[in-house]
Design a protein around this nucleic acid. Sequence first.
DNA 1: ATTAATTTTTAGGTTTGTCTAAACATTTAA
DNA 2: TTAAATGTTTAGACAAACCTAAAAATTAAT
Lengths: 219, 219
Amino acid sequence: MLNYSSSEENYLKAIYHLQAETGKVTTNALADELNTRPASITDMMKKLSSKGLLNYKPYYGFSLSAEGRKAALIIIRRHRLWEFFLAEKLGFGWDEVHFVAEELEHVSSKKLIDKLDEYLGFPQFDPHGDPIPNSKGKINTTVLVPLAELPINQPAKVVRVANKSTQMLELLGDKKIAIGSVIQVQKRFDFDGSLELRLKPSLTEIISEQLAKNIFVQL
Amino acid sequence: MLNYSSSEENYLKAIYHLQAETGKVTTNALADELNTRPASITDMMKKLSSKGLLNYKPYYGFSLSAEGRKAALIIIRRHRLWEFFLAEKLGFGWDEVHFVAEELEHVSSKKLIDKLDEYLGFPQFDPHGDPIPNSKGKINTTVLVPLAELPINQPAKVVRVANKSTQMLELLGDKKIAIGSVIQVQKRFDFDGSLELRLKPSLTEIISEQLAKNIFVQL
DNA sequence: ATTAATTTTTAGGTTTGTCTAAACATTTAA
DNA sequence: TTAAATGTTTAGACAAACCTAAAAATTAAT
C-alpha cells in the first residue's frame, strides 16, 4: 500500500466528494473546496495523474482512477471512524468531530484503523449518518431521499445530514432534529419551498428549503 | 497556545530527551537522534531560538527555554497518552505503540487530548513506565534505580524500560520481564556485568549489563 | 603551542506545496 | 461568428525543511 502526503490525501478526498455530490470536478470547484488557487490545482493534478491516481488531460477535467478512488475511500474511512470515536467514546458534539478528524485522518497506520474499527464495534455510519467504508475500501451506497422531496404525510427517519458546518448543526439542534428522528412533512409552502414538519404528535417545526435539501431520510 | 509544525515538535521533543538523558545537547547528538545532518540542526536552532523556544548562541550549545520545555512536555503528553490508548484500548503490543504514537502526537487539539486523558482514567504512566505529563505540562520526576545498580537480594519492582526498540522489547518478552514484575538480583558477574535474576521462586534468568541498564526498578 | 582532528556553521541547492500574473482555451453572448 | 467573459494552464517566485560541500571555530594531541 502506497503512502501519500497530507496534501495529496486532501486532494483525493476533495475530488471524491465533488465527484459524488455534483458529478463533475473542475479546477475552480476544487480550488474553492480546498481554499487554494486554481494554479495549485493544476500542479497537483499533474502530480496525481503521474502517480496513476486520476485521469487528467489539460482542459478536459479529471476523475479518479480505480486506484485513486480506493485511496480516497481509505482516507474517508479513517475520517469517519475517528468521527465516530470522538462522538461515541470521547463525548464530542457532532458539530465538533469534523474538524479534529481532519487531522487524525492523515495518520496512516492500517493496523491502527482496523483495530479502531474493531474496538468501536464496526460502526456502519459516522455521527452525520455518512456510511463508513470497510477495510477494503468498499462503501455502502444506498440512495437516500432528501427531506425536501419527501411526500406529504409520509413518515420517514432522518439518517444523514449532508452539510457539516457548525451553523447548520446548531440549527438542527434548535429544531430538535437529529439522526434517528422520525419526521412527517405536514405541509409544503410552494412560495419558498419551506416545510412544516411534525416531529412528535405535539411538536411541529418550520424549516427552510435549504435546510430540507441537506437532510436525508429513509422510508 | 501557539502551534508548531511536526518538524518543530520533533526537534523540541528530541532536545528535551537528550537534555534529560545525557545532560547536554550538541548539534551532532541531535542530528544523530533525528536522523538528519548537522547543518539542518543549525537551521532549526536558529528558527526555534527566534521563536523564543530555546537559548542558543553559535558554538555554545543550546537548551530549552521555559516555554520550549513546556511545549516539549505537551508533545510528550500527547505521545504517552496515545501509547496508553493503543496498548490499553486497542490491544497493541508495547513494542508497537511507539511508532504509531509518533504520528498521533502531532494532532494538536487540546480538547482531544484532555478528553482522551479523561476517557483513559488519567493514567500516570505509559506502557513503558514513563510518566505522563498533566494538562499543564507538569511531569512527575521520581528518580529510579537502574536494575544494574540494585543491591544483591533486594526485591524490587520493574517500573520502567528506557529503550523502546522492538529488539529490546522482544528480549524482555523472552525473559518474562514486564512492567510490574518483581525481581531480585541473585548474583552479579563482575567480568561482564551480567546479572542472575530471580523472577519467581522457580524462575531465574541471566541478563546482560546493557539490558540491566535499561530496566528501572522501585524498591 | 602548534598542528591535527572534530564539531559547528555558512553558502548555496533541492523538493514540496503554495502563490501571482500573464498567457492560452473554451464557452457564452451580442 | 466574432467579441467578451470565464475557466485553465504556464512561467516564475517563495517558504519550509531538508541536503552537500566548504569554511570557521573549538578541542585534542604531539
